[in-house]
Amino acid sequence: MKDWDFRYDLLPLKDKLFRLAYRITLHTAEAEDITQDTLIRVWNKRHELEDVRSLEAYCLTVCRNLANDRRELHEAQNLSLDGTPCDAPDNADEIDSRMERDERLQWVHRLMAKLPEKQRAILHLRDIEGHSYHEIADILGVSEEQVKVNLFRARRWIKEQYEKIENYGL
């Protein structure tokens, strides 16, 4: 029987959760809300989590689901009155202040933001958080094969964008 401690087991995961939520919603305040929500939800359900293999993976799963719920909610709000869908607001321009001066990093940020959510989440968990395929599959609830395929597509697309700059300039 494991007794979880909020301060020592859950709170240290906050930055990781925040980064994933931000990667999906592309909105700082929203990501902060989602992180808080994730931590509170997991904490309130802690007695049911005795057979959870990794608390971190579980939290990341909850966080991704919450982030996607919010994203879908916002996307639904962007439907125009006659029912034809219009583009979601481009939140990718909201960038961390540290990055403001570095245009190159901003460019990569926008590049990643253009990927579909699944590819983006997988690329994030692999390249920024350094998770193994197995762990990512566990977090996303898909097969390792799926993780590899999506990662491959994401990286290939980014490579193509880099080749474009190399060949034609930005």
Partner: peptide, 8 residues
């Protein structure tokens, strides 16, 4: 690398 250090 930069993104890995972003926090709350």
């Amino acid at each position: 690398r930069a993104e890995a250090t972003v926090g709350l």
